[in-house]
Computed example of a mutant assay.
Amino acid sequence: MSERRRTAVGPVLVVIALAVASAVVLIPQLASTDSGSPIVPEASRAPDTSSPSVAPIPTEQGRVTHLVDGDTLDVSLRGVRTRIRLLNVDTPETVKDNTPVQCMGPEASARLKQLTPVGSTIGLVFDVERVDQYGRTLATVVTASGQNVSEVLAQEGLGRAVRYGQNVAGYATVQAAVARAKDARLGLWSGACG
């Protein structure tokens, strides 16, 4: 190649390289979703170890007034204080009479507090049997951001799948979340509980 051609190609390659570098930096910043959040290219996203389902659509709403433990909370429901027992998940005990605090119980309680802080509005989804033997209202709790609380607790290894009476809606979802937690060795399945 002649000297003259080489000098003409050099600056062109530099311009092309700068254009590509700018596009790589700017395109992810310019692209956005409907919410205005930047789109992160698949290759640069952290691996997704979860597969949360779509939470059921709440039929009622309540305001959280008190958290009892990892799977029980009090809610103002149509102006009446109602104790809610989460469907499909059982977390380790922290406040049960004559029972010591169980491994991962405090973590489950803390996580429920994060998901449903006092004063927050939550959605409730009921199944066949609405009240348990202790007079607690049985419901799937859905956060304001649309998370199924039972599934989140199970997926993070903070609870086991459990069925209450004839209530089966959502049970398979929580079972699958428990299986993911076991595979990932999280919480109750991390080895920390002996």
Rank of each mutant, 00 (worst) to 15 (best):
A17V: 13
L186T: 03
Q29M: 12
T65L: 10
I16W: 06
A23D: 13
L138R: 09
V89W: 00
S190C: 13
V24Q: 11
I57P: 00
G191E: 07
G194F: 00
T116Y: 05
G119C: 10
D48F: 02
S32W: 00
E3Y: 07
V68P: 02
S2R: 10
S53Q: 09
Q29K: 06
R83M: 10
T143P: 03
I84H: 05
G70A: 11
R63P: 05
G79R: 09
G159N: 06
P117Q: 07
G191S: 10
L73A: 11
Q29F: 08
D127K: 02
R78V: 06
T140Y: 01
T116N: 08
V152H: 02
V131M: 02
C103R: 04
E3G: 12
V12A: 15
S190P: 04
A55F: 01
K182Y: 00
E156S: 08
S145P: 03
R5G: 02
G146K: 04
R63M: 14
A8N: 03
E93Q: 08
A43T: 10
S35Q: 15
A46N: 11
A46K: 11
Q155P: 01
T137A: 13
A169R: 05
E151W: 00
A139T: 12
R81T: 15
V54L: 12
H66L: 11
D97E: 15
Q147N: 10
V128A: 15
R81V: 12
P56H: 11
S22Y: 11
L77Q: 04
T91D: 05
R185F: 01
R6P: 05
L86Q: 01
D48Q: 14
G170E: 05
R78W: 05
D74A: 09
G135K: 08
G191Q: 13
D183L: 11
R63V: 15
I27W: 12
V40P: 01
R136D: 14
V95Y: 01
A55I: 04
K182N: 04
V152Y: 07
L18P: 00
G10H: 05
K113Y: 02
A179W: 01
G10Y: 14
H66C: 03
G123R: 06
R45G: 04
S109M: 13
R4P: 01
A181V: 03
F126M: 03
T116M: 14
T143E: 11
A31T: 14
L73Q: 05
V9K: 06
V9A: 14
S35A: 15
E129Y: 06
S22I: 10
D127L: 09
G170Y: 07
C103F: 07
L138Y: 07
S51K: 12
G194R: 11
P47F: 09
I122V: 15
T65N: 09
G191R: 06
T7D: 11
P100K: 14
A139G: 13
E129D: 14
C103A: 09
R5P: 00
Q102V: 11
K113F: 05
R4A: 15
L30N: 04
N148A: 07
G159M: 06
A21Y: 03
V162H: 02
V54H: 05
V141F: 03
G62I: 11
S22V: 12
L86V: 09
A144T: 14
L86F: 12
S150Y: 07
A172W: 00
G10A: 15
P56Y: 13
A144Q: 12
V149W: 03
